[in-house]
Design a protein around this nucleic acid. Structure first.
Lengths: 260, 260
DNA sequence: GCCGGGCATGGCACTCAGTTCCCTGATCGG
DNA sequence: CCGATCAGGGAACTGAGTGCCATGCCCGGC
């Protein structure tokens, strides 16, 4: 229930693709869909795929792993993405840690969107089988940890840095999953990117961009300066005791952003 | 891996307490600590406890459940707490949904704080055994769902209500766990309540109180009005393009709250 | 005091996931 | 042509979790 062996890992994503692995996934899902997950034994899967039982566990460390055949690759992809702090000059907004982890979350969405029908089928499966739901939680947890670790690095030295990192990571994952599930419930008919973008925008609005973190001298002269002139000022007048979210809403309206 | 039978459920928390259940937990932890979780079989546990193997699975649906013997009760407690919307007049601040779910999270903390040594031992165990970590995730997930469902009810009809509910629930759980783990890492020497209060305050600050949700006529005339005079005003002047978190910080400083 | 029906427990056997060990056959370099 | 390496197959084993039934205990009824 942890790491997959993945003997085909050496090359990139366009590696030779072992047919056995794919045929096992295909056979498994065929049986899962017509018979249910728990009602299907590994022996039945390998019988249908025409391979030996031992080979199944060579490719998938557990029966649950066959349901999430590409998460290991996706997790590696996300770590690569978060590890690349080098190419920050070109693409705008990548300097903001919150925006960065939101983009990292979109890596996961892309994996789901690559195979809509497969993703929808898997969604229906995990929704009704508690064991798969639990397994999915452990996968999602690893994504969340990756985001949190990245943010902890960016927030290093800051007061409550790890707390803020954990909270933002959790919020980003929750928003991503909210959008993703909304898309999955629509049987892949809605716009996945739009759903997730909307959800992530909500989180980014709450936690805001935080350019101070990349250095005290960093001013919003880059992309964010395009929307607002630098010398304009905003004045907010508020009653004491007013709810903070309403103050924020007012400020954002003044700043010309979309409140919701 | 779901519901425990708990034959002693009928009465309240001070029910007769079946000795067999406790002796199984004690025997299990003794072996887990000296031999490791995976190196201990259920047969060894029941042998040490002096009961039949079948009885183990009567009290604990799986081997993992014996590590979290009181989470089922705690989850029920949290649901009770969130279900009680009746007694909202007396205790101040309970009207704010965010504050309410923070208090609900404190119910979990209380359970951990009741048995510090047990909680610390379990923490060390779950930290090194992947299977237990996964199981704990499924438990935490149920807490999070309870909070999210409550918030969804409170945010019903509001735009992006379910999204906001999911995000806040995730943030509250992440903050709670951050404080809780900080306490557990200190071997129970630090102040658990202080740790978690601090973490939850961070979240409450981010999402703010939201009195509009209990009705448009509701104004902060209750407890929150005690801290601030109603007619005072706060003026914030900010550059356009300033990071939102800094604006919030300024407003909060002006309001006299603790910024972090 | 005796009887019968729940009810908690124990014991046994079974299924199935996951692992260990070893065999087989193909491919490839010398 | 030979030997090394390695993907795959197969049998047997461990251990978690379940179903079934026997046993013994408590408790109210007669």
């Amino acid at each position: 229930m942890s790491e997959a062996p993945r003997p085909d890992q050496a090359a990139d994503a366009t590696s030779p693709k072992p047919p056995m692995r794919d045929s096992l996934v295909a056979a498994a899902f065929q049986l899962f869909l017509e018979r249910g997950y728990e009602q299907t034994t590994v022996d039945e899967i390998v019988a249908l795929a025409g391979v030996g039982r031992r080979s199944f566990f060579r490719y998938f460390p557990s029966k649950e792993d066959v349901v999430f055949p590409d998460h290991e690759r996706c997790l590696a992809e996300m770590n690569d993405f978060l590890g690349d702090d080098s190419g920050q000059g070109g693409d705008g907004g990548a300097d903001d840690p919150v925006a960065r982890v939101c983009d990292a979350a979109r890596v996961v969405l892309r994996m789901y969107a690559e195979n809509p029908t497969f993703s929808v089928q898997r969604y229906r499966l995990t929704k009704k089988v508690p064991g798969l739901r639990t397994y999915e939680l452990s996968v999602v947890w690893r994504y969340e940890r990756a985001l949190a670790e990245y943010l902890r690095g960016r927030f290093a030295g800051r007061r409550d840095g790890t707390l803020r990192a954990d909270v933002i990571a959790a919020a980003v994952v929750a928003a991503h999953n909210n959008g993703l599930r909304s898309w999955l419930r629509s049987d892949g008919q809605s716009d996945a990117s739009a759903e997730v973008d909307h959800a992530l925008a909500h989180v980014q609005q709450v936690f805001g961009s935080d350019p101070d973190l990349v250095g005290p001298a960093q001013r919003p002269t880059g992309k964010s300066a395009k929307k607002t002139a630098d010398d304009d000022v905003v004045v907010v007048i508020s009653r004491r005791g007013a709810p903070m979210w309403r103050v924020v809403q007012e400020v954002e309206t003044a700043l010309g952003r979309d409140p919701e």
